[in-house]
Design a protein around this nucleic acid. Structure first.
Lengths: 252, 252
DNA sequence: CAGTGGTCTAGACCACTCT
DNA sequence: GAGTGGTCTAGACCACTGC
């Protein structure tokens, strides 16, 4: 579809919108992604076909796809095709989990769901999620461990409207990362996230769960995660014990 | 023209390794950067000239420069030219300072040099800096404040061999960020850095300097910074008070 | 083998900056 | 106007994948 609009400006005049052709193509592709027309894991049409469809040269499509690939929305595989990025791939597993063991391999942690229930969004959460205050959210409390040793206590808020039918049971029985589940079961793909990290002291309850002393130092990590179109769909408040792990970051 | 073999014209420039032409060009450009042939702030030769010099098409040079620009080694400016990236520009100021005030603008902090002396590298520091244990380093201790309120206590190790003549006085009289000074005065440009963040408790001495309670929670940030060719040239251990600031990170 | 993305070229024109 | 990077095209061939 959508061949008529952009094509006019293709040949000579930059008529309708005033942006490079490849940016417009990029927008059209992003539109297909947002609309769920191409789902995570799907192969998208080949460069040649997209070029024909949009009536531009292959090079222009290529430049659009290049940028989307560098933004981790698409994945190119030589000889196979270009695919919608997915959290199921091992490569993307650790993009959102910055805690690395001080010693040993960064295996994926064990997860225990402590709680999963509906809750009205507190004002702050509602604001971050772009909801009306008091609107229904799913609240998940979770404990992550490595080799039986707990190290992360999480509180996760999700808009109920998107995550209908999410229960502790489905979370517990799933052995895949949360974001993989969100993607496959609820059609919501996390694209990027902002985190704010602080140092705090463990209160009594937290200390008990994480098996540290009361007053032990913890990382407090506030995350807002976004799906397509910069739409916020998750707020997460994590308390990380950094006795055996550190929060890894690359500045570049 | 576009005939027989791309590989032949690649062969005219020696092609001992089997990699795409533009990667080889990228390597040649990087070589000029590492050799200090083009210094930070300099304009590098135009695409057309580089294409002529290396006997490739402009498009190939362009692709090489595109990648270097995306790695923040070069900066393109339409109509002007392509320049070697520098820490003096405002845009790069905050790439390496992830602490953001909870309220207010992220102004650049005030800096007080507490100490600057020669010291033999402890084994751990030597290992990180790729030095022999006991080799001479410059040790800087520094306090950063915002509006008179201290919030970062830093220890910085640098190889003496590179930072000859670095004194507390030169640091104190300089009103530019450290990395700008390193670049302009010592010809060493920081390219990227790895950080490991943990939560710790303030000891007595630290608490006094940072004006927090003893046992207050602090971020401990261990940084190794690299210049060209992944050569480590700085180790930094920072203690951050997150009462008024947070460590900001974007996952993407 | 056909189909995909990856590289390379050559040349056109546009947008921006400086003089 | 001259010189720079930015966009776009058309066509060639290479490298990889899977049938």
């Amino acid at each position: 579809m959508s061949d008529a609009t952009v094509t006019l400006s293709a040949a000579s005049a930059p008529a309708p919108t005033f942006s490079p052709l490849y940016q417009q193509i990029k927008g059209l592709i992003t539109g297909c992604l947002e609309a769920g027309e191409w789902k995570p894991g799907d192969m998208i049409p080949s460069e040649i076909e997209l070029a024909a469809r949009y009536k531009v040269s292959q090079g222009t499509v290529r430049k659009a796809i290049d940028e989307l690939a560098s933004e981790n929305l698409l994945v190119r595989r030589q000889g196979k095709g270009t695919f919608v990025a997915t959290h199921i791939e091992a490569r993307t597993q650790f993009r959102f989990l910055r805690l690395t063991p001080i010693e040993g391999e960064p295996r994926y942690p064990e997860s225990v769901i402590l709680e999963c229930r509906r809750a009205r969004a507190p004002a702050e959460i509602a604001r971050l999620l772009d909801l009306k205050s008091g609107e229904s959210t799913v609240l998940i409390r979770r404990l992550l461990s490595r080799g039986g040793v707990p190290f992360v206590l999480d509180e996760i808020w999700l808009p109920s409207a998107i995550f209908k039918g999410l229960t502790a049971e489905r979370l517990t029985n799933s052995r895949v990362p949360l974001y993989s589940l969100f993607e496959s079961e609820f059609g919501t793909k996390m694209i990027r996230a902002d985190e704010k990290v602080r140092a705090v002291l463990a209160d009594v309850a937290t200390a008990q769960v994480l098996k540290v002393e009361r007053g032990a130092p913890l990382l407090s990590v506030d995350r807002v995660a976004y799906t397509y179109a910069e739409r916020p769909v998750e707020v997460r408040r994590g308390l990380y014990s950094t006795r055996d792990h550190f929060y890894k970051n690359e500045l570049s």
